[in-house]
């Protein structure tokens, strides 16, 4: 069967770079909490978390190297959850 999926081996180095980026963003988000950005505090924290999760998905979870169809599925699932949250807030925002 199709064994060609596993021919790609990710270098150790790549993982170390990703980890450094992830740690960096973690410390930035902790540091930003100390500064009062008003309503943008949550936005910054969530934005950094999203970038971090994209990195984890793409490199650690191999989405970048896998068939495209996995990436599409993951994106759709996140989109679905986002839509559900938005529609739920149709109620709470305007109540």
């Amino acid at each position: 069967m199709e064994k060609d999926q596993h021919t790609h081996i990710v270098k150790y180095r790549t993982y170390v770079y990703v980890l450094i980026a992830l740690l960096f963003m973690t410390f930035v988000s902790v540091a930003v909490t100390g500064i009062d950005l008003g309503p943008y505090t949550v936005t910054t924290a969530l934005l950094l978390a999203s970038i971090k999760s994209v990195l984890v998905l793409l490199i650690f979870m191999h989405l970048k190297f896998d068939k495209k169809f996995y990436g599409i599925m993951v994106a759709s699932v996140f989109l679905l959850l986002a839509c559900v949250i938005v529609i739920t807030f149709m109620d709470y925002l305007y109540r």
Binding site: T26, S29, V30, T33, T41, V42, A45, L46, L48, A49, K52, S53, V56, L57, F60, M61
Partner: peptide
């Protein structure tokens, strides 16, 4: 993959609980 999922969820739990 399972372990990364655990990580992924924590990436969101951390700012939502500890950083507000």
């Amino acid at each position: 993959l399972y372990w990364h999922l655990v990580d992924l969820i924590w990436i969101f739990l951390f700012p939502l609980f500890y950083l507000i």
